[in-house]
Amino acid sequence: MMDKSNLAMHMAGSQRWSDSRPDSRVGQPQPAKPTRVKNIGLLGVAFFIVSESMFFVGLFLAWFYLRATSDAWPPAGVAPPPLLPAVINTGIALLSTVAVLFADRAIARDNRSGLIAGIATAGALGVIFMAVQSAEFTALSALAQGSAYGSTFTFLLLFHVLRVFVGVVLMGVVLVRALLGHFSSRRRLLVQGTAMYWCFITGVWLVVFAVLYLLS
């Protein structure tokens, strides 16, 4: 039977042996957290993005269910949405994704001005995206209350543009901290996380664009 005394005390009492382990980082201080992955924070962002995707899966489920149970989609008397602003926004979304990825690659090579330029461009494009959307939203409030089509259409756009807003705020934080010189190739979790999240937002937009505009 085991002694009731503290096993941890036994461990503390005996000498360290980690330094003699052939596979340990000899002579280097171990990190406070025994890490298995390079970046715990990014893994967290990845799982968060999974949950965010499921939110949109829920909304799309409603879209397809309501579409399948409706006689006409969009219903009679409702014009299909104008394609031009959505096409423009698709271009803007793709450009901003390129910019944010450029910013991330730049700081990975310690190119701070590249980071600032990339993130400022991506943020500005995000603001333009929201401006184009908001023009469409003035027409949407009546549409939302008129039919199931209008409600799901509005919700998908609304909850996507909310994510765009969050992304733009994140990019604003990155920009300010980049100007303050907080980032380097070794310290860029926020930049990477923002870039990942922005790619996700763009991905959602592509699905929204395809389903709401092209396939209706």
Binding site: V50, S51, M54, V57, G58, L61, A62, F155
Partner: peptide, 13 residues
């Protein structure tokens, strides 16, 4: 992670 956001969407709707 996979189930809750769908309920959240339904609740908001």
């Amino acid at each position: 992670l996979l189930a809750t956001p769908v309920l959240t969407a339904a609740l908001i709707m």
